[in-house]
Nucleic acid binder design. Sequence first.
DNA 1: CGCATTTAGGAACGATCGTTCTTGACTGAT
DNA 2: ATCAGTCAAGAACGATCGTTCCTAAATGCG
Lengths: 160, 160
Amino acid sequence: MGRPRGFDEEAVTAAAAALFAARAYDGVGVDDLVQQLGVHRNSLYKTFGSKRGLYLVALRWYSRHVLVPLADRLATGADTERCIADLVGRNDLDLLLLAAVERAPADAEVASVVAETLQLLQRALDRASADRGRITLSEILGERLRARAVFAPSDDDSVD
Amino acid sequence: MGRPRGFDEEAVTAAAAALFAARAYDGVGVDDLVQQLGVHRNSLYKTFGSKRGLYLVALRWYSRHVLVPLADRLATGADTERCIADLVGRNDLDLLLLAAVERAPADAEVASVVAETLQLLQRALDRASADRGRITLSEILGERLRARAVFAPSDDDSVD
DNA sequence: CGCATTTAGGAACGATCGTTCTTGACTGAT
DNA sequence: ATCAGTCAAGAACGATCGTTCCTAAATGCG
């Protein structure tokens, strides 16, 4: 009963995760979310409760649907180098980096998700490099941090 | 001529660096700065031009007066382990981490300072561990990131 | 067909953001 | 002592923040 929702909740969650990975939490306004996600304010607050609620859902979705598969692929031990190169070269780790540095110190729930996700990656890496054991998770995180630490004008800087 | 200023510019810069190291850039309001630095709005804008201006001055001051000495101590090669343990265990790296992850992608000048500072640390570490060469700068950054990724209720959360 | 219910679309809220302006107090040079 | 010039103190600005409210449109069920 009632009018059916005109958006895919998971797609919105994924898009929110992408936004929060590109900018800092406080740098992403609800207006940005509404505009880029195609969901309107009311639906957003009805579905996720608050901006922080959406952030937490997006963070958990990202951990489960982006990093867990990546950790699984890593844990098999095949293509380890390729996996690590992807982690450093692509932006898959960015939301985790931002959450760890910026939100976790101020938000216990975020800190909890970050801790679990880090453990997850740690175990996968331990398994992957049980024999080849050279690179550490810290080093991967540091490498990605350095790769991210460059000025990269975002696409919507020229948007009205 | 004129009334002499009632604050120490360098002390204010250092205090601002500490604030920006604890919270994210957007998480530190001008009100926070005014309140915790003891400087009043007018003086702050007269001296530093803007919030971003103060941030840049604080970041450069921090690079020069905190990380450069630390890099020098590291480059001597004496007490290398102690130096690294300090980098990971204390919060000396935090402003650099935040600047790298959060501000650099959105601010070219910040990115420039971060890049120079990272090079600085890299060279110092290269010199320090020319013989013992084990830990990388990326690993130190990653270690500190993980150490920071815990919920740490800040002192002024209970302040009115 | 209506009735109940949920969504979409925006206007609007108070609060806070970074910044500027106004006013008065203080000091150094004439 | 007086005047110019700087600083302190805080009110006030428009803009934007996260959030809520109101109204109209769209569906499943009787």
